Amino acid sequence: SPEEIKAKALDLLNKKLHRANKFGQDQADIDSLQRQINRVEKFGVDLNSKLAEELGLV
Rank of each mutant, 00 (worst) to 15 (best):
L10M: 05
L47Q: 07
N48Y: 06
D29L: 15
Q34C: 09
I30R: 05
K42S: 09
L33T: 03
Q36A: 10
D46F: 03
K15W: 03
I37Q: 02
Q25I: 10
R39D: 15
L55N: 01
R19W: 15
I5C: 11
N14D: 05
E41C: 07
G56A: 06
V58P: 08
E54A: 08
E4L: 10
G24A: 09
V58K: 12
A9F: 05
N14L: 14
D11T: 03
K6I: 09
L57E: 03
R19E: 15
N21M: 15
K16A: 10
I37V: 03
L57R: 03
N48G: 11
K50H: 10
E41K: 11
E53L: 13
V58A: 11
N14A: 09
L57N: 03
G56P: 02
N14Y: 15
E54H: 05
K50I: 09
A7G: 07
I30H: 03
D11R: 04
Q27S: 09
A20I: 07
L33C: 02
Q25W: 15
V58I: 12
S49P: 02
Q27K: 10
S49T: 07
Q34W: 05
S32C: 15
L10C: 02
S49F: 02
G24H: 08
Q34V: 15
N48L: 08
F23V: 13
S49W: 04
A52N: 03
K16N: 03
D46V: 05
G44I: 01
A28G: 11
G56C: 06
K8H: 07
F43P: 02
H18E: 15
R19Q: 14
D29Q: 14
S1H: 10
E53P: 01
E53A: 12
L10R: 03
G56V: 04
R35C: 13
K50S: 12
K8R: 14
D26L: 09
I30D: 02
L17I: 06
E3L: 08
D31R: 08
I37M: 04
N21F: 06
E4A: 12
L57M: 08
K42Q: 14
E53S: 08
G56M: 08
K42Y: 06
L17N: 00
D46S: 08
